[in-house]
Nucleic acid binder design. Sequence first.
DNA 1: TCTGGGGTCCTAGGACCC
DNA 2: TCTGGGGTCCTAGGACCC
Length: 422
Amino acid sequence: MENIFLAKTIFHVDMDAFFVSVEELFDPSLKGKAVVVGGRPNERGVVSAASYEARRFGVHSALPLRTAYKLCPQAVFVDGHPERYRVYSKRVFSVLERFSPLVEMASIDEAYLDMTGTERLLGPPLKAAHRLHEAVKAETCLNCSIGISTARLVAKVASDQAKPNGILWVLPGQEARFLAPLPVRKIPGVGKVTEKDLRGLGIRTVGDLARLDEAVLGERFGKWGLALAGKARGRDAGGWFDSEVGAESDPKSVSHEHTFGEDTADLDVIEPVLARLAAMVGRRLREYGLHARTVQLKLRYSDFSTITRAQTLSDPTQLDTELFEQARRLFYANWKTGARVRLLGVHAGSLESGAQQMSILEEDNSRRWKAALEAADRLRDKYGESAVSLAKALKGAFAERTHENPAGLPGRKRGQRDFPEK
DNA sequence: TCTGGGGTCCTAGGACCC
DNA sequence: TCTGGGGTCCTAGGACCC
């Protein structure tokens, strides 16, 4: 499609075993051992990251911790430290942004750089990549791998092939040839299910995929099939991979969820968790300056069956109290009464940035709440999460609601569990 | 094996409107 | 009274990624 002289140079930088490597910086005795980050071996939960030593025993991310323990009982199991990873992610970013003005952190441990036009300053791609690699190592003590190509997707696959601690440049024009022998699973976006579907069609490698008629793929797999056809030929066809490196965009949703240590049907356990989740979502919305038009509840039972139930609001909100009210209503409207719950989630979607119109009375009320909650956020920043009791804040909210009763939500007496029907 | 938490994107059906 | 068609919004679920 594009002229080779106009082709871009994209780097994909991927940190090697990022969480494990950061933990090793804090505890050097972990070095060289089988390390599993994610929690204790008897906890509910999955592996966040595994050291290369642990991977040799078949341990990998997303594996249940209990299974990881069975596969590799001698491994050291450590809790994850998200704050540490964020700090190191920022350090990596501050190195990267010296190499290009167009840097995009695609996740906490990987980034794309548009290196087009940096040759005069930094030299040809491989040389620039080596410098970048050394700079990251020198300033963070962490290893990374770098993939270089004309397209984001190919750069990403290349960095994966370069691991660990390597650099791989796919020469312009060689994209399809580089991808062809790889299993389809290597294409980002092709998971277990798509892999199986493709296998049913006799397709195992990216080359098999590329030989297939684009129209056939489009018919069989819809929009995604067309993108897939492009990907197999080394093009950033459709979707996210098409966007410019460094293009910022607002978050599309904000959510928090919690899996109980033990399944529960106890409302004195369930309600506070729902309140906490709603408050966490509200807080993030206020940080982003966004309002949610839809509130969604997620409910998972002991047998792992999971439902989601959503409600669209007439007035988008960023207030803990309203988020909680909606989530609570959805819970009582859909919970199989008495059934034990494994997980609860609160999700805010259809996010809007502008201020919404309200009646003067509502506006006044809502402004007071907003100010109060922002003050609470600041307190939490200063003194930690426990400084402001959420339960108290919410109790206050209900007292006020009951008093003014704008939403018609009845005050709940102790022990009264019935929820009003719509 | 007994399955986290935070996201993005896509599909499909139904309601509703013109 | 045998049954159009397009567009948009809403909801539920699922694949996938790190």
